[in-house]
């Protein structure tokens, strides 16, 4: 049974599942480090997915789609940045509202712009090409998934490393962490918490937008209503479980992606889709229970009246 499950196709579907979660979670991680509670990843990812399809359709070129996705993610993130940072609104309320806003907005724009409901697929939509890296892509089992992939997928792993360097080895990273921990202390040394928080939130918008582009132009080539389907929330949990550390976030994303990929495979083996769909969420909950001692801080954040 295990030989049937663990093959190149499984690795491939794990990789597919992981990239969007990882990208969004990295964005959430930056926000967490800057002291902004970011739960609108889901909405920004959805906006990114829609914009990616729209851009790619308009220009018949995936590059413009990715650009659209990034811009859309960043634009949506500004709603949270303005409300939570400039206006000191409740980030939880704003996050929920932004998620619902994007669900409604994409649901509205789909029929208004493309005249369809539910799903928009069209030959003009240019999907992201997969580039095979000669030699590496021939490695058995892992090769095809890791080294025959989209540009966004290639970017995501080095990006994780780059963010580690940024956070822990550069002056800007130090300042960002300081802002998240004690904004008054940062301000008293001339570092503006507002500026850092804005950049953090906008970065998360860019990354969630990219995640949406990978979802809509990489994993499939279409936009489906609510296609982020909870991945943004899983990314929120990945930030928690990974303690807002790049390595931890990568590990948590991999765990969830693995359960999603496995579910996908088991579905092929005849398990009902309703059960396999629930798998990543169940795994997420179990992982939360296993690692529960870690998030006293978040609990305080979310239960303080």
């Amino acid at each position: 049974m295990f030989d049937q499950l663990f093959d190149g196709a499984l690795v491939d579907s794990v990789m597919r599942a992981m990239i969007p979660i990882l990208l969004a979670a990295l964005g959430g991680m930056i926000c967490d480090r800057a002291g902004v509670f970011q739960i609108s990843l889901e909405g920004m990812m959805l906006a990114g997915a829609f914009a990616a399809v729209a851009g790619s359709y308009l220009a018949a070129a995936s590059g413009l789609g990715v650009l659209f996705a990034v811009v859309a993610g960043a634009a949506v993130s500004l709603v949270l940045a303005f409300g939570a940072v400039s206006r000191k609104g409740d980030p939880i309320v704003l996050g929920i509202a932004v998620n619902l806003l994007m669900l409604g907005m994409t649901g509205f724009l789909l029929p208004q712009i493309f005249g369809v409901r539910g799903v928009f697929a069209h030959p003009r939509i240019d999907g992201l090409d997969r580039f095979a890296i000669p030699g590496l892509s021939d490695i058995p089992l892992l090769g095809p998934a890791l080294f025959d992939n989209t540009i966004i997928a290639y970017l995501s792993l080095p990006l994780t490393a780059a963010l580690w360097v940024f956070l822990f080895r550069t002056p800007m990273g130090l300042r960002l962490r300081g802002v998240g921990e004690r904004p008054q202390a940062a301000e008293s040394l001339g570092v503006s918490p507002t500026v850092y928080k804005y950049w953090a939130v906008v970065s998360s918008g860019v990354l969630a937008g990219l995640a949406g582009a990978q979802l809509a132009l990489g994993n499939v080539v279409q936009f489906a209503e609510n296609m982020s389907s909870g991945r943004g929330w899983i990314a929120v949990v990945a930030v928690m479980l990974g303690r807002a550390h790049p390595v931890g976030v990568l590990g948590a994303s991999l765990l969830f992606a693995f359960s999603e990929g496995l579910g996908f495979r088991l579905q092929g083996n005849g398990l009902p889709v309703q059960i396999t769909d629930a798998l990543p969420f169940a795994v997420t909950l179990i992982a939360l229970i296993a690692a529960r001692k870690r998030f006293a801080r978040l609990l305080d954040l979310t239960t303080a009246g």
Binding site: W233, D277, F295
Partner: peptide
């Protein structure tokens, strides 16, 4: 278990 309701209640929707 000190798991934030915000997260768990939402994830349980999917379940």
């Amino acid at each position: 278990l000190r798991l934030p309701i915000l997260i768990t209640s939402l994830l349980l929707n999917y379940v």
